[in-house]
Amino acid sequence: MTIHSLYIYDRHCTCVYYQDWHRTKRPKPAVEGGILPAVSQVVSAVFPLNADGNIATSSAFNSPRNTLSSTTGIVVATNSAMNQLPVASISSSVTQAPGGSTTGLPFDEEAKLVYGVIISLRNMIKKLSGKDEKFVNYRTSAYKLHLFETISGYKFVMLSDPRTDSLRFVLRQIYVGPFLEYVVRNPLVKMDSREQGIDNEYFRNSVDKLIRGLSVFS
């Protein structure tokens, strides 16, 4: 059993965060303008270049990686190092998948499909079983999708091995732990701005540590 990927959608139906672990086929980078900046470097749109060969900052991916250190109470605002990296290393990290294998879908299209499935199944369940019934997961022969929705409208979606038990408690742990600590309580993160995602170094590292510590992660 294993965990494949994590998506977080805001109340505006927009994917604001993505992370994966055991994907055999990585999605293609999103088209320019297809996703918000600071969702994930690995699926960001290909960067346009200036005449001098440097990244055009006007439309290039920019992850502010702003965090609030809970142990010191000091606001840490570290500028993205994207503009300091060689162009070759950036393009290779964004466009190449492990083994050179991709799904054939740009990430923005994949994110829309995942969200569309969630909304369709949730609406179907409410119509068939009543408003009190909740959609929490579904299983196919290839994967299992797990859903946790917050009162504020954020949706945490995880794809795992089809044999995995419900991981809704894990999604809730991500919400009440790293998400509240490094996103909601971080004054430098713009919630519901519709301008950028929530790619945050502390948040991403905390989620990664939590997932890798699970018994189902292999």
Rank of each mutant, 00 (worst) to 15 (best):
K209N: 08
G116Y: 10
F148M: 00
S92H: 08
C15M: 07
P162E: 01
T57V: 13
M82D: 08
N200E: 13
I118N: 08
A51S: 13
E201S: 14
T103K: 06
I119C: 14
V94R: 12
R194W: 04
D20W: 09
L113K: 14
V183Q: 01
Q19Y: 02
T95P: 02
K28V: 07
F47R: 07
T71V: 11
Y7Q: 09
C13G: 04
D10I: 07
K144W: 02
T102G: 01
R65S: 12
L85M: 13
V39A: 05
T164I: 09
Q84C: 07
S69F: 07
K126M: 05
S92P: 03
S92N: 08
V170C: 09
T14R: 13
T2W: 15
F203M: 06
C15T: 10
N186V: 07
H12N: 11
I119L: 10
D192G: 01
K144S: 04
L128Y: 06
I90T: 08
M1Y: 08
M124I: 13
S160P: 02
H146Q: 06
D132W: 06
Y138K: 02
E110M: 14
S44T: 13
F61P: 00
S120Q: 12
G99E: 04
S91M: 15
M1N: 08
V75G: 14
S101D: 09
L180C: 10
I55S: 00
R26G: 04
V75W: 04
V136D: 05
L180A: 06
V183S: 00
T140K: 05
P64G: 01
D199A: 11
S5F: 00
L167E: 00
D20V: 03
